[in-house]
Each structure stands twice: as C-alpha cells, then as structure tokens.
C-alpha cells in the first residue's frame, strides 16, 4: 500500500478530513515536540505550543500551498512563529534546568556516578544553549537536532542561507566557549 504524502494529507485535511490530521500528527509528533522543547527548554510551554501548532495546522489547512514549500517546512514555520510570539511575551523566560535534570535522572540500574555525570553534562548543555541568542539557538536546533538541510531551514525561517550559515558558525564558536571544548576568545 502506498504511503500518502504529507501534501496529499494536507489537502484532505483542508477538506475537513480529521483522519488526515491524525496521520500527520503521528508522523510529526516527536520531531515537533522536541523542536518546541529545545527552543523553549520548558516542557509545559512545549505542550501548549504543540496544541496551538496543530490547531493552526487544522484551521489553516486551506492556506497551505504545496507550490510554496513542503508540509514539513510549513509545520515548522508555524511552530517557530508561535514560539517566537510566546518568547516576545516572555511566557517561558525562566530556565527549567533543574527540573529537567531531575526528570531525566534514571530511576535505578545505572551507577550513581554515571547518572550524576550524565545529569551534569545535560545541565551544562542546557545552560550553554540557554546562553545562545534565540536566533542562534534556532539554527542549532534545526541543524543539529532536527537535522534539517540549510535549504529547509531557510524555507522555515524565511531567511537567506548565507545568513543562517553565518549564525551557525557564530553558534558553534559560542557553544565551544560555553561548553569548554575550545573556541576563540
């Protein structure tokens, strides 16, 4: 059986087919949630933004034009814009590093030293990412974590590729400095 493309499902969704929305949700739940979580570093904010993102995907389905880009880019554009809006309202300005560390600590089975080391590493990464300016953090999350191509990131952010690459270089240098792996001073 052929797998229906995202774009075909989006067309079905535009005609009010809720089943198409469910299929698209299942395809993108993980990537979209982690994308929002990494941008906000706040689990509750990420959950709320998931709600808003998919509500918009459903209500704005008729606005999606496959000739202007792929569904995946459209989805991430919506998620990114909502995140930026929320950030401008400072709804998730607090860093929930401590909570994240506690939640991800293994319940048992792993040596306490290894668990602490892992938690410490996560804390440092979270802090380093938190220190990055939002535009640099966005490009790092999309490139390293979401593994999007620069052409795709350009589509999502409506930003020239050259600008994105310059941001990425800056982000790499800053992260090396914050993480203590090297970098220029």
């Amino acid at each position: 059986m052929d797998i229906e493309s995202d774009e075909a499902l989006a067309a079905d969704m535009a005609n009010g087919d809720a089943a198409a929305l469910r299929v698209l949700y299942d395809r993108y739940e993980g990537p979209a949630f982690r994308f929002l979580l990494r941008l906000t570093r706040d689990r509750e904010a990420a959950k709320d933004l998931m709600q808003e993102t998919f509500t918009r995907v459903w209500t704005m389905a008729r606005m999606f034009d496959p000739e202007r880009g792929r569904f995946k880019s459209w989805l991430f554009t919506i998620a990114l814009n909502l995140t930026r809006n929320e950030r401008s309202k400072k709804r998730y300005s607090a860093i929930h590093v401590g909570q994240e560390v506690v939640e991800t600590m293994p319940a048992g089975g792993e040596a306490p030293d290894a668990a602490l080391l892992q938690a410490e590493t996560r804390r440092r990464v979270s802090e380093a990412m938190g220190k990055l300016p939002p535009l640099l953090r966005e490009v790092v999350v999309m490139k390293i974590h979401q593994q999007l191509k620069f052409t795709e990131i350009a589509e999502v952010t409506r930003t020239p590729e050259g600008t994105l690459k310059a941001r990425f270089h800056r982000a790499v240098e800053e992260l090396r400095r914050h993480l203590g792996t090297g970098g220029r001073r």
Partner: peptide
Amino acid sequence: GALGGWMEEAPPADLRERVL
C-alpha cells in the same frame, strides 16, 4: 557530540489525545 541526546524526550503519553 556534546549536544547529541539533549532533550531527546518522548512527548507525554496524553498529549496526542489532548491536541487532536
């Protein structure tokens, strides 16, 4: 390498139902 695995969390189990 340092960033790998950061916030590689699964969505909450009840999120799908709530969102849809």
